[in-house]
Design a protein around this nucleic acid. Structure first.
Lengths: 232, 232
DNA sequence: TGCATGATGTGATCTAAGTCACCTTCACTA
DNA sequence: TAGTGAAGGTGACTTAGATCACATCATGCA
């Protein structure tokens, strides 16, 4: 049902400014795709035919080293778009994308998107805005990987989580980690064991109290200060 | 002289598709700026008023850790634009920008650029394209910082240089490094001493022959293979 | 109920990279 | 042409983080 698609498209940063009539045309040409957890949508370097709208679920975009280690570039959850970059710069897919959970997507061909963007400047502007904010986050990732140590990088992730999904309690902010240590490692650029040990270290430094997946941050300020601090 | 400005603007990826008449309006509002080597154009986090066209010279965009270490995000040389990101996503400047050498720029206000992009979709599209290709390179930087070791990262830089400015000789490709070890370190995410030692290591592994700033790469394939290889 | 399977915890060890201290070389200009 | 400051080189040492090898611990599902 196209109406359904349009409702989804309307929720994306990329397409929200377009009229229903325009979306209708895009929707008509879109193709539904379903992914299981960890199923791969496309590989880095593959020729890109178009972008995807994530209707439900979430995906991660990552790069793999030749010895198998993953580095997550970004994670996107419904409702948003993924793979705008190759649509606009005409290159191959820049990273591999896989489903973090069961995920439903709509595929839109490069030609359709470009044609629409040419006719409707607000789409081209939205694309510039969206890609710009992605680049901003990517530059931040470069900074943390290069200039901060793993304790700080882990703290940043916890901070992010606390700010977005934290629950205020009398003892501080409580978060429920939905990521395994392996997944965390791929995001902060390290390995599983180091994540485990870093959790313990943060606890020793009394920045967090953790009990498995439940983490309590007594003092958000303190964690933020630590995440930003110098290395020595 | 506005004509001069227009010639410069016409050479940028961002503005080349615009008509002279449109450029004329932009040019009229642009402001000339001159920087000495290492002079700072703006700081990361500062409110952004607009973008710059690099008319001559070159600049580096980087982030600084609290203990003073720099990580270069990208380097841009004339003729191109810099700081498109905040113009389109409306945030602050994402990184600090400083001149690598004596540099001349034209400032264009955010409002002027956005107004033009709204009226001329080809500008918005060019912006999306340009920012997308920046994001692509940034993702590559993330990969190399996270997944490759310094030897490989240094090799990548040499490879880049060889492909762009290398001179073919009977013994291989010869390049002249214009960067100090300190500058190289900031680009590949390490420190000066490590760069010095890594040069020696690459020479020991017979991937390069170096004599100060002059570097000879006997076998480009071999260096490329090394740069991409697994860590063990 | 029980056993795969994946997630986590932990000791022992290794090593790439960072740090410090100092020296030499180079290039420019006073 | 001496002197100053930046750049490059190098030895000695430290350390964060990676690796390996196991030992639990959950938890779904057969």
């Amino acid at each position: 049902m196209p109406d359904d698609k349009i409702t989804v498209f309307k929720q994306t940063e990329l397409f929200r400014d377009l009229d229903e009539a325009v979306l209708e045309v895009l929707a008509k040409h879109s193709i539904l795709k379903h992914l299981q957890r960890n199923e791969i949508l496309f590989l880095a370097g593959e020729p890109a035919k178009g972008l995807y709208v994530i209707a439900s679920g979430s995906v991660r975009a990552f790069r793999t080293s030749s010895d198998g280690r993953e580095q997550v570039i970004h994670v996107e959850k419904a409702v948003t778009t993924i793979a705008e970059v190759p649509v606009f710069d005409n290159g191959n897919y820049p990273s591999t994308v896989a489903a973090e959970e069961e995920t439903t997507l709509y595929f839109l061909s490069k030609q359709d998107v470009i044609k629409t963007a040419t006719a409707h400047p607000q789409l081209a502007l939205a694309a510039a805005r969206l890609i710009a904010s992605r680049l901003r986050r990517c530059a931040e990732l470069v900074e943390t990987l290069s200039l901060r140590e793993v304790g700080q990088r882990l703290a940043s992730v916890l901070l992010d989580e606390a700010r977005n999904n934290g629950i205020e309690t009398s003892n501080g902010i409580k978060i429920k980690l939905r990521l395994t240590h392996n997944q965390l490692a791929a995001r902060i650029g390290t390995v599983r064991e180091v994540v485990t040990r870093t959790f313990i270290r943060l606890q020793d430094q009394e920045l967090i109290v953790h009990d498995g997946k439940d983490i309590l941050i007594p003092d958000l300020q303190a964690v933020a200060a630590y995440a930003e601090s110098a290395r020595d």
